[in-house]
Nucleic acid binder design. Sequence first.
DNA 1: ATGAGTGTATTAAATGTCTTAATACAGTTA
DNA 2: TAACTGTATTAAGACATTTAATACACTCAT
Lengths: 121, 121
Amino acid sequence: MIVLDYRDKRPLNEQVAEKIMNLIAQGGLSPGEKLPSVRNLAVDLSVNPNTVQRAYSALEEKGYITTVTGRGNYVSEERNWKEGLKSEMLTEVRAVIGKAKSAGIKLDEALTCVREVFERD
Amino acid sequence: MIVLDYRDKRPLNEQVAEKIMNLIAQGGLSPGEKLPSVRNLAVDLSVNPNTVQRAYSALEEKGYITTVTGRGNYVSEERNWKEGLKSEMLTEVRAVIGKAKSAGIKLDEALTCVREVFERD
DNA sequence: ATGAGTGTATTAAATGTCTTAATACAGTTA
DNA sequence: TAACTGTATTAAGACATTTAATACACTCAT
């Protein structure tokens, strides 16, 4: 389900959260679907349960999953996270484009670059 | 010349390097111009000389500055860093746009977002 | 009710990176 | 020669991440 990258310098809990978030955003995990338990996923990833729990807490905070004590974690309905996700993405895009602009990238170059990414299948 | 942001969680040496890189890329520092000495900048920023040195080493590695032992650090000619900078920026743009795409952002939304950033003065 | 499985919380220790500090050495320049 | 440059090394501290070992509360099937 998930593969961690130990060359990546970001914290493991962030990596776990992001990878699950991506799965949810792309439909690899559907609303209502149950996630692995904290302990099971920890074993799968060869990681401490605390690390998984921090990932799950972050995901719940952002509305991607719903936690029920004693039962488990479930993927939330799209309406709970779709808007937040989009605005988060657009904020990131603005930051990077602003950086590219001040580094001398021209509007046309940026637009072409964006189109190329979207043309990829 | 530079103001550090202690809320930023990135290492100080990276922040210093990036801010100087931005100054160079935007012409705030011109090719041939001399940079503050390691020790002076360290005092200005209330930071350890080692921290500044690491920033300068990184900048030299990427071709933004030229180091002459005993003399100081000087901004390199544009040809030494312009292409590298542009390709680095485009790589970042591709990464973020790819992420935004897989999160459900549409091509038109991305293009509009990019244009808006460039319309800002 | 009991037991297995769930999420949650706490505390301590280990680890690794960043940063500081104190030096030392080598090259340049007035 | 003196004062400035960059470079290198070692030690110590601060800090965040991660692990580890527990403990507690809730849910569910039996």
